[in-house]
């Protein structure tokens, strides 16, 4: 569904992506893991057209290289940016309407209303907080709203940037469970995460990014068991060093 070939991006003289090639098939959850500064966010921003990029990106056969950021969502690709990027003074209801911004006049209003109900089933908390300004909600609620806002555009591919950032483990688990549920409903997800363990648990396949290059890829289950990955990203060796104390 999403094909990326030899994608490069740089900030001035600093190379952030040095020829990344990856693909996401329809109906998959693909995780992209890596440490701080590996280029994970840059990769998503490059797909979204928010940074200058070179290479090849195609979505369902169509090139995204000339697509402006604000056109992307109409093609069926929605981005949940890093740090949620909610509009602090706007209410939950406003966010959901803004999520469906590009569908205005293209689909009947009742279809958007029905989508809103679907969202409330997924995130009942949002219905309780409908009129609350987004900036006053907890981190977990904000992340849910950020995902909900993106879902209101009815994307086929969801790009998620670090949804676990700054959240309690229980909340992270709830969000990951929701993503797994969404996949069952037919959504394709590209999940960028530093919390590798949480991401690999729900992902089908994963790529490991290091200093702008893919250094490892494979089935998520295999990567969870891979020694190199466990040492670098899952912190499992800690136990071995300290004899479990």
């Amino acid at each position: 569904m999403l094909q990326i070939r030899n994608l490069t991006a740089s900030y001035g003289p600093v190379t952030a992506l040095a020829g990344v090639t990856l693909h996401v098939r329809e109906g998959e959850i693909v995780a992209l893991i890596g440490a701080n500064g590996a280029g994970k966010t840059t990769l998503l921003n490059a797909i979204a057209g928010l940074v200058r990029r070179e290479g090849e990106i195609t979505f369902t056969g169509r090139s995204l290289m000339t697509v402006a950021p604000e056109e992307l969502v109409s093609l069926g690709v929605a981005l949940v940016p890093e740090g949620r990027q909610l509009f602090a003074p706007l209410s939950v209801a406003d966010h959901l309407l803004l999520g469906a911004y590009c569908r205005h006049r293209r689909v009947p209003a009742r279809e958007i209303a029905a989508d809103r109900e679907r969202i409330f089933q997924l995130f009942p908390r949002l219905q309780e907080r409908l009129e609350q300004p987004a900036g006053t909600m907890s981190g977990g609620e904000q992340q849910m709203l950020a995902i909900a806002r993106a879902l209101m555009a009815r994307p086929r591919l969801l790009l998620l940037d670090e949804p676990s950032l700054g959240l309690a483990p229980l909340v992270v688990e709830a969000i990951m469970t929701t993503l797994a549920r969404l996949r069952k409903q037919g959504l394709t997800v590209l999940l960028v995460e530093q919390n590798a363990r949480a991401a690999l648990k729900i992902a089908d396949r994963a790529y490991v990014l290091e200093t702008g290059r893919i250094i490892l890829s494979g089935a998520a289950r295999d990567l969870l068991a891979d020694r190199q990955v466990t040492r670098a990203y899952l912190g499992r060796d800690y136990k071995e060093f300290t004899d479990g104390r």
Partner: peptide, 24 residues
């Protein structure tokens, strides 16, 4: 209106507004 909502959104964060398909 819908337009006003989009305006308040882009006042807050242009990048996020663009990611929703708003022609800022």
């Amino acid at each position: 209106s819908r337009l006003g909502r989009a305006l308040r959104a882009l006042h807050d964060s242009e990048v996020a507004a663009e990611s929703l398909g708003i022609h800022t």
